[in-house]
Simulated scan of single mutants.
Amino acid sequence: MAELSTRGTAGLQVGRRDRAAKRRLVVMVHRSKAQIETGKAWQKLNFRSIYDHVPQQCLPWGREEIMSRKLKVFVGYDSREDIAWQVCRYSLLRHASEEIEVYPIKQTLLREVGLYSRGKDNASTEFSLTRFLTPYLAAHDGWTIFVDCDFLFTVDVKSILDQVSDEKAIYVVQHDYTPANAIKMDAQVQTSYPRKNWSSFILFNNAHPLVKALTPQVVNSETPAYLHRFSWINDDKLIGELPLRWNFLVGEYPKQDEVPAAIHYTNGGPWFTNWQNVDYGDLWLAEKDLYEEAIRADKSA
């Protein structure tokens, strides 16, 4: 595991704004240290990525020096579905042909460091709107993925980059459907709205000006509809379309002969008592077994 450098905090200026940035940095470091789980063989956390959240002017060196060139994947985290996040991350890392970075988007932590300040809402998940902070958190000009925690990956996620164009701002699977169930997950009411589930898997082109403009100020002030319907993209031609296999909605589409690349248990997965017999549920349970086996192996090593 990378050793945490102290030169970032030592190099911060003594101005009021810089002291605030330093406090945020310290909070991020200590909270991240406390949240490291076991699984050293398949999970590595580079503390330097924490510096991505500090304003450029507060750093004594360029952000490029500490930025990773790897694909970054941010997974929506919900405290009710911790095991879903763990299995999603494990499936991403297990199938990766190259090292990738996978991070949870935790609303509590984002609030603590001042990046998310909206009031409480009636959203079905804790990451309903924090997902749109993904490009800001990634802090690089490459491609970055956001994905809900209730996904299972069956292929190398980096292969998605073989089919993208730098001219697009984002890529999504452009679903057009009416939900088959009135209730989902743990008794949550199912809602229907334009472009539903487009935002459950987003491939962001962080170099695009419209993506760069998706700042915390925008995320904290605009309406949920504005964010989820991608109204911040002023030309629909800038929204690239991914094949269905990259966001296959279990229970909304017939089961496929070929296993999808990214299986989305959008109505509920096997980690919920009432959703044990869903399509591809056996694959998720098998991945969970592999994850738990890896945890046991690391603890006994």
Rank of each mutant, 00 (worst) to 15 (best):
I202P: 04
Q43F: 12
G268W: 01
Q217S: 09
E112G: 06
I50M: 09
V26H: 08
N181T: 02
A138F: 09
A10L: 15
I36F: 11
K40W: 14
A207N: 04
L92Q: 10
E126I: 07
F272R: 07
G240T: 09
L4F: 13
D282E: 15
F74A: 04
A169G: 00
H30A: 02
W284M: 07
V189W: 10
A2G: 09
K158F: 01
G11Y: 09
Q35S: 13
V102R: 12
P224L: 03
C88N: 15
P60Q: 12
Q13Y: 11
S159M: 06
A294N: 09
D156M: 07
R63E: 00
D148P: 06
A10S: 14
E3S: 10
D186M: 08
D289W: 01
P216Q: 04
S117C: 13
E65Q: 15
I36R: 13
I233T: 02
R19I: 14
Y77L: 12
I145Y: 03
D78Q: 05
L93W: 05
L115C: 05
N46L: 12
Q107R: 15
V27M: 11
N46D: 15
A301L: 14
I160C: 04
N247F: 05
D298R: 07
T191A: 06
D148M: 03
H140G: 12
